[in-house]
Design a protein around this nucleic acid. Structure first.
Lengths: 238, 238
DNA sequence: TTTAGTGACGAACGGCGTTCGTGTCAAGTA
DNA sequence: TACTTGACACGAACGCCGTTCGTCACTAAA
């Protein structure tokens, strides 16, 4: 006996629906984050991408905050850690920092979810163990090694965060590539700084060109070397 | 002749209404920021505080983003700058950093509005001129001085940002003072880290106590000295 | 075959930033 | 003095957001 035509079947194509899962949600969130940026990442957007309503996500994730943490740790899992070699602690710390920097650049906006999270995810912990172990085995006192690790991490995340805000602005301005944005941005700054009154801002207005020198990479490296040198100066002599 | 009773007077007490102005809006926003935190600061909340509707603000401020920038610069104006003395550049830079740190602590959440803003406000520019001039006059090449200033600023704001996120958590947990939060927080971390498998995280689990040593102030100072020492090592000899 | 439990999800709540159109009033002009 | 003009104030609405509630379809145990 056929169903009466006015009774619409409730779930037209249920069979093909893939199961929701935390992993699927995290992966989808990361995809949105990479493609459309932090501001576009909402629970509703993730649900839409999965052809469902926002309420469905809450069975697998306690809320947006947890989702962000999960995405962050998922990204950190892309960081490749070498076998620790305390004799080369400085080189290895530098390589580690550059590796994290690279991963953060590939997932620009993930840093917005990162600051002030005590690492509890698997990948964060592994990264922490690597850094901390390296400093300890190189001879640094435990308390100081904690501070050094903490500051280095703050630097990595802080720099990435700043970069991601620039990225967001670029997107908001409707630009396609970093070059275009960078160019327009620098031009703006130069124009503004050159218009400053010389007597009140003698140094800034004199060195406008130098102020805008160096891209993000240069700046990151410079700050990194500052920190590493500072740490080295405090490392007990072998 | 009395007005018909059904026609309610449109503006009951118009006389006493104070004029809106950009300064008033900024000051109100800052008050909310300090008292209730970043997440409580909304256009509607500011308008409410001024006994008006949110639309009224847009005559004086282009939007929330501009409001945040204005508040940020307003806060920076509390930073007191000494007369530059290049011979004492390191001390002065340290004092400057501590002064900024102090101001950011008084207005915890303002750092959330600060990252990635090329300084265009009056106070930001004055701070920049101070820092930059100090490095230049101390003998640092202009390009390198730009990098050093940039990284130092990033550190100041990044640290404050992290602190403000902690503050927000504290508020969300309904705690009253930093001590209570700090205590609960540290206890949580210790418990978690002690539960880690020893074989995978030998260093982390061995030095749990040391990992949580040092309060925010200690950490800030340590990172600051790292940077300053790094800069000093690059400063051409006098 | 009944029951208990779980995941999916439509609908709604309260909040957000911002825009539109209208209303009011003061200053300038004829 | 009468009229025009323009700036400001603001109620209402639009389209978002995160989250919660109650209900429904379905599965697995009893």
């Amino acid at each position: 006996m056929p169903a009466p035509p006015w009774r619409k079947s409730r779930r037209p194509a249920q069979v093909k629906r893939q199961q929701l899962s935390q992993e699927l949600i995290v992966e989808t969130g990361l995809r949105i984050l990479d493609a459309e940026g932090f501001d576009a990442l909402s629970m509703r957007r993730v649900a839409q991408e999965l052809d469902t309503g926002p309420a469905s996500l809450y069975a697998h994730v306690s809320g947006k905050e947890e989702l962000l943490e999960l995405i962050y740790d998922r990204v950190l899992s892309e960081v490749r850690l070498p076998e620790p070699d305390p004799a080369r602690w400085k080189e290895q710390l530098r390589e580690y920092a550059l590796e994290v920097h690279r991963v953060f650049r590939d997932h620009a906006d993930v840093a917005r979810a990162a600051l002030a999270n005590i690492p509890t995810g698997e990948s964060s912990l592994l990264a922490g163990e690597f850094t901390y172990g390296l400093l300890i085995e190189a001879g640094m006192p435990p308390v100081e090694a904690s501070l050094a690790m903490d500051r280095l991490t703050l630097y990595l995340v802080g720099d990435a965060y700043e970069g991601s805000l620039h990225w967001a602005r670029m997107r908001a301005a409707g630009m396609s590539g970093p070059e275009e944005y960078f160019q327009a941005f620098v031009a703006q700054i130069i124009a503004y700084y050159e218009g400053l009154p010389r007597e009140r801002f003698p140094h800034l207005s004199k060195h406008v060109k130098d102020l805008t020198a160096g891209d993000g990479e240069d700046r990151f490296t410079y700050g990194l070397e500052l920190l590493l040198d500072g740490i080295e100066a405090r490392m007990p002599k072998a």
